[in-house]
Design a protein around this nucleic acid. Sequence first.
DNA 1: TCTATAATTCGATTATTATCGAACGATAGA
DNA 2: TCTATCGTTCGATAATAATCGAATTATAGA
Lengths: 115, 115
Amino acid sequence: MKILHHPDRSELNLSTVLYALSDPIRLLIVSKLRNGEERSCGDFELPVVKSTASHHLRTLRESGVIHVRIQGTQRLMTIRTDDLEYRFPGLLEAVLGAYETSEEKQNLLHTEQPT
Amino acid sequence: MKILHHPDRSELNLSTVLYALSDPIRLLIVSKLRNGEERSCGDFELPVVKSTASHHLRTLRESGVIHVRIQGTQRLMTIRTDDLEYRFPGLLEAVLGAYETSEEKQNLLHTEQPT
DNA sequence: TCTATAATTCGATTATTATCGAACGATAGA
DNA sequence: TCTATCGTTCGATAATAATCGAATTATAGA
C-alpha cells in the first residue's frame, strides 16, 4: 500500500503555495475542488495527458494545497481548506474568487483535450 | 527618456501575479513596499547582486504588482494596490498578512548580502 | 565637461519545470 | 487468475528562470 506524503500544517510555506497556485492547470484543478468537493484525477478533464496531470497533482499535494486519499484504484482529492486558512487566512478565498472572475478559466476550458 | 511598460489594470493575469509573488526575494520586496511606501532599488537591501535585483523588479513590474517611476537616476517603486484590489480583491492583503507571520521573512533577512 | 551614482542590459551558466509517450504498479471485478 | 481501470514513474526534450559579473546607459552635480 502506497503511502502519500502530505506536509504538516506547520510546514506550509507561502512561496511554495503561491507557486503551486501560479499554474493555469493547477488553478483549474483547485477551482474544481471548491466547496469541499472530492474528485478523482479523471474527474478534472484537464487539457493534458495523464502523466502531466499526475505531475500537477503531486505539486499541489507536496505544497500542501490538496489532500489525496486512496480508495481502490482511485485517488480522491480535496482542498486542505482548514490548514490553508490557519496558515494563510483569506488567501484561498481570494485566489478562488479572483479565478472565478478571470479570463483564465475560459481559456483552459476551451482547450483541446489530449488523448 | 526611458519609458517603462506597465500592464493595464484590465490586463492583470492571476497566474502571472501569483507567480511573481511566489519568489522569496520578490515577496521581500513587496513586503517592504507595504502601506504605500515608495522605495528605490537600493533601499531594499536584498541578498542578491544588483543585476539580479533588477531582474526581480522587472518581473514584478511586468506582472503588474508594482509601479515604477523614474526620478533622476533612481527608480521609485510602489505597489499597485488599487489595481490589484480591483482585479483580485483581498489577494494582496492575504499574501502580505501571511508573509508577516511566516518564517520566510526571517530566512531572507539573515542572509549574507553579496557585493 | 568630467565624474560619481543608480540601475539596466547582456551573455553565460545552472537549475527547475512543463510536457509527452512508454512502461510499470496496484486494485477491483469477472 | 486474467483483464480492465486508474494512476504513477521514468526518460527525454524544450522552455523558462534565477543568478552572476562585466559592460552599458542615464542623470545629477561639481
